[in-house]
Nucleic acid binder design. Structure first.
Length: 931
RNA sequence: GGGCGGUUAGCUCAGUCGGUCAGAGCGCCUCGCUUACACCGAGGAUGUCACUGGUUCGAGUCCAGUACCGCCCACCA
């Protein structure tokens, strides 16, 4: 046993504890401190790797907590529990951060060049990775740091190459020119998921295109009724890339123009008027300009009609290749000038504000441009089908279940995944091109020796300059971290993993891709359960973000309130998939709870009978030495074990903390300790009895510390060190065994409920009557014979808790009131279950008004009891209820009716007695009215 | 345009199988420094479980619809 400081100071407690865990090597499932049961299957949780260049925010802390609590729980249950930590290189996100830093130095990707840029990135990420890892340790992550992985380490690099090669070999990776979303700021393509549809008010311009006289090849004269056709656009600069004008096939207005040609202004290109179903005749003019290289719909239209696809936007979104003066201008400058020029020519038919959805870059917020690029794609159809099969068959379960519908919808409508990124930071795509255009994909670290098609030597091959979408390497995470593609011991032992915990916001980005790639490459679903956490929001319910300035730094919170409080706060009252607001109140509540636990333990430790060796082995409480309160306490602890087990099995972590908070605070501390105090201080009891009482406290406390450990690991570990252990216990709580649910004693629990109810009732009555709390008042209690022994053992505690002196026990209700002289002003009556008490008031504080107040109180209680009683009776009088409700429910209703009737009866009696002694004439009080 | 979630005490939220489910924390009010804890203890007040209808012996809970708030998905220039 170790001493506990008087005050609970999280900083001191937590710092020392983590070092002890590390020293004991208990985090690794195969570490020297592991106590795993070899007969149980392992439990594997691969951490969603946080961005290496990021900083830990509250969301990370919350996820780490949930992950860690699952791991700790599994570990205590005896499973070899692997919590594999990691970091993500976060391709585009990291580049975005570094680019901004470089910009402040007047540098850029271009000025540095690829090699120096990547060198800077490595230096930068090396400096931030330590911060990220240290933060996780502060939160208490019991991760196996020896297995720490990084999406840019050699193992991941190898996995990425092999995975891609296999996908290519199986026809699931292909290279093609396609319309992709391009971010001019990041200078890369982004996936559909990274496009943020943003509502904006733009402008819809109407532009006249001049028809061409086929005979002369010149524009038809303005006098001709069909001199022009008017099209509408929100992006006039794309006019420069137009290769057709389309109308709906059924549109009578334009039918006669179909097949004619119009001249695209500035580029002076003559393009056909075509028909296509994509056109909505009701929108705008019903005629649509077609820009196949810069619009999704137009691209599809272009493909259907075999239209040319001139690209007019450069990587930086300046105009290019148009042969017009607009070349070299930024897209928006070009737009302005182009509109002005059209207006000057008289070809601007109109402009009006237009509500529209603009695609913006998730990272840089730039407006994205659809454009053609030759990129690598992953064919998703077959993999998505397998992923759906895994969830439909139940091999993988998504929690909360409602997200399975989202999952279904997305995977059934999935499009091929563009994995090429024109970034530098990431895994280079292992594809080489020979001068003849042959493609060679190779998993070799040094690339292929020769072109796979024509045999040209490596020296003549050029590797694809692009890198993979960062989610490609993340998608391999559950198995690449365990050694895949090598057939390692870890992979065999820990794969498939048990639970994947992550935020619901990346279910598509990440979970779906892990699932697809895992099934494709390992033939197994990578995890059996997906636990989706909700998002942490600020106290106003807003998403936390740096730009809003409402981010909470978890380290600040930990410094102030402790990691245990933070962990408890983010778990307490939270439900899977449900966002939660986080504010100071929750945190304070959690810290208070830790403090409560600390002080309760300090009391137990300090209350040790001198006859017990502080350094001795823990003794099981001797049942013969236990009083009803101690047996009740142990029964309740068993009940809590049972309830917590059920909640854990349901992944209802908020329920777990609620159960423990209630059990520890409202049962163990409020009643268990209070009853025990009296008993431990009772010199009349035998030494063995006091010892038994203390061992019972230790037993219950030990159980609660174990149950609470996964959520509040530091404080429980520290406190556990202060209580005696069993010979079978390990040195540290983190590897101690999860408690088993022992027997309950329902009858005893009911008796204690009555006793506790009586104490509460007496306190309540005394408080309402305005009686000095410290005044000792003569109190009588009628106790049915079966409860006699319990009452007698608890008598000293009841005396103390109710300030009753003398406390006299009566065998029947009728006997109440005989033991002391009723005094003017009346006595207080309290009914709790089968117990009934009368508190006699001191003469000097009694007055007629007090009697009236007591009557009012009793009448209020009577009224309430009568309402409940009549409701219960109405139920029993309902034939259909009697006929159709289950027997157990009917029996319960009968019992309730009996109890309520009894209570009403007693309250009436007490009211009569109170009225009678008061002598104010109101002797017949039946509770109908309140004075 | 589809889909999902939320609506329960002044605030933030739990509420699993339909039957002691009207709950917690915070806040508020009244007391109290009783030898674990003032980061505490004792007591108290506060509800049309958003609305409408339905199923059921019985609905905060299941079904349908409505309203408001929020999120996700979606190629209308």
């Amino acid at each position: 046993m170790t001493d506990l400081p008087k005050a609970y100071t999280p900083r001191e407690v937590e710092g020392a504890i983590y070092e002890r865990w590390l020293a004991a090597d208990v985090f690794a499932p195969d570490g020297v401190g592991s106590t795993a049961d070899p007969d149980l299957p392992p439990f594997t949780l691969i951490q969603p790797p946080p961005n290496v260049t990021g900083s830990l925010h509250l969301g990370h802390a919350q996820r780490t907590t949930v992950e860690d609590l699952m791991v700790r729980h599994a570990r205590m249950r005896g499973h070899a529990a692997l919590f594999l930590p990691g970091l993500d290189h976060a391709g585009i996100a990291a580049q975005f951060v570094l680019d901004r830093m470089l910009a402040k130095e007047g540098e850029s990707r271009q000025t540095l060049g690829r090699e120096r840029y990547l060198e800077r990135m490595r230096t930068f990420s090396d400096s931030t990775r330590h911060v990220m890892l240290a933060q996780q340790r502060r939160v208490g992550a019991s991760a196996d740091w020896g297995r720490l992985r990084y999406t840019m380490d050699d193992g991941s690099a190898h996995a990425v190459r092999v995975a891609f090669e296999r996908l290519y070999r199986d026809g699931l990776a292909y290279r093609t020119e396609a319309l992709i979303s391009w971010c001019p700021g990041c200078r890369t393509s982004v996936s559909d998921l990274e496009v943020v549809p943003t509502p904006e008010t733009g402008t819809l311009w109407s532009v006249r295109y001049h028809l061409i006289d086929e005979a002369t090849g010149r524009p038809v004269p303005a006098s001709d009724p069909d001199a022009t056709i008017t099209v509408a656009t929100t992006r006039p600069e794309t006019i420069l890339g137009d290769t057709a004008v389309a109308v709906h096939p059924d549109d009578e207005r334009y039918r006669h123009l179909v097949g004619r040609r119009v001249r695209i202004p500035f580029v002076e290109r003559d393009v056909p008027i075509i028909v296509d179903d994509v056109v909505d005749p009701a929108f705008g003019t019903g005629a649509v300009k077609i820009t196949p290289a810069h619009d999704v719909d137009d691209h599809a239209t272009g493909l259907r009609h075999g239209l040319p696809t001139p690209t007019i936007l450069a990587d930086d979104a300046t105009i290019e290749n148009t042969g017009t003066p607009f070349d070299g201008l930024d897209r928006y400058e070009a737009r302005r000038r182009l509109v002005a020029e059209l207006d000057a020519r008289g070809d601007l038919a109109g402009e009006r504000p237009h509500e529209m959805i603009v695609g913006r870059c998730q990272r840089s917020n730039d407006v994205l441009e659809p454009r053609l690029k030759t990129q690598w794609f992953i064919r998703t159809e077959s993999m998505a089908a397998r992923a759906l099969d895994a969830t439909r068959s139940g091999r993988t379960r998504i929690l909360p279940e409602r997200f399975e519908r989202t999952w279904e919808h997305w995977l059934t409508n999935i499009r091929d995944w563009n994995v090429s990124r024109q970034l530098w930071w990431g895994h280079r795509i292992p594809a080489w091109y020979c001068p003849l255009g042959h493609v060679t994909v190779s998993a070799e670290a040094d690339g292929p020796a020769a072109c796979a098609t024509c045999g040209r030597p490596a020296a003549e091959l050029a590797q694809d300059p692009d890198v993979f979408d960062t989610w490609f390497s993340s998608g391999l995470w559950p198995f690449s971290t365990l050694g895949w593609p090598n057939d390692t011991d870890d992979l065999r032992r820990y794969y498939p993993t048990s639970v994947m915990e992550t935020g619901y916001d990346i279910i598509f980005f990440w979970v779906a891709r892990m699932m697809m790639l895992g099934l494709q490459l390992t033939d197994q679903a990578p995890f059996h359960t997906v636990y989706l956490s909700g998002l942490i929001r600020d106290p106003e319910g807003r998403k936390m973000s740096k730009t809003k300035g409402n981010v909470v730094d978890p380290l600040g919170v930990i410094d102030e309130s402790g990691a245990d409080a933070l962990r408890f706060a983010v778990v307490h009252g939270a439900a899977a998939g449900q966002d939660q607001r986080f504010g100071p109140a929750k945190l304070e509540n959690a810290r208070n709870f830790a403090n409560k636990l600390w002080n309760a333990t300090r009391f137990v430790v300090g209350a040790r009978p001198a006859s017990i060796d502080p350094d001795g082995e823990r003794q099981p409480p001797d049942p013969r030495q236990l009083g009803p309160a101690e047996r009740w306490m142990l029964s309740r602890a068993n009940a809590t074990v049972d309830a917590v087990d059920r909640a854990m099995a349901d992944y209802a972590f908020g329920e777990v903390t609620r159960l423990l908070y209630d059990a520890i605070w409202n049962e163990f501390c409020d009643w268990g300790l209070e009853f025990a105090k009296v008993r431990l201080a009772d010199d009349e009891l035998e030494e063995a009895t006091r010892e038994g009482t203390w061992w019972a406290l230790v037993e219950a406390l030990d159980t609660y510390l174990r149950l609470l450990h996964p959520v509040m690991p530091f404080v429980t570990e520290a406190l556990w060190a202060a209580i005696p252990h069993r010979s079978s216990d390990p040195a540290l709580l983190i590897v101690a065994r999860w408690p088993g649910a022992g027997p309950r004693d329902a009858g005893l629990e009911a008796e204690l409920d009555a006793v506790i109810g009586l104490v509460r009732g007496v306190r309540n009555a005394r408080a309402e009557a305005g009686i000095e709390p410290r005044a000792w008042l003569p109190t009588e209690v009628s106790v049915p014979a079966p409860m006699g022994p319990t009452f007698e053992v608890l008598r000293p505690a009841i005396e103390r808790l109710t300030h009753a002196r003398p406390l006299q026990r009566r065998l029947t209700r009728e006997a109440l009131g005989d033991g002391a002289q009723p005094v003017a002003g009346g006595a207080l009556s309290v009914i709790s279950g089968e117990l009934e008490a009368i508190v006699h008031r001191p003469t000097d504080t009694a007055d007629p008004a007090a009697g009236a107040a007591e009557r009012a109180r009793l009448e209020r209680e009577l009224g309430e009891a009568e309402r409940h009683l009549s409701a219960a009776r109405a139920r029993l009088a309902n034939d259909e209820f009697m006929a159709k409700a289950p027997d157990a429910v009917v029996a319960g209703a009968r019992a309730r009716e009996t109890a309520l009737a009894e209570q009403v009866d007693r309250l009436r009696d007490r009211l009569d007695a109170t009225g009678g002694t008061q002598g104010t004439g109101g002797t017949g009080g039946t509770g109908g009215e309140t004075a």
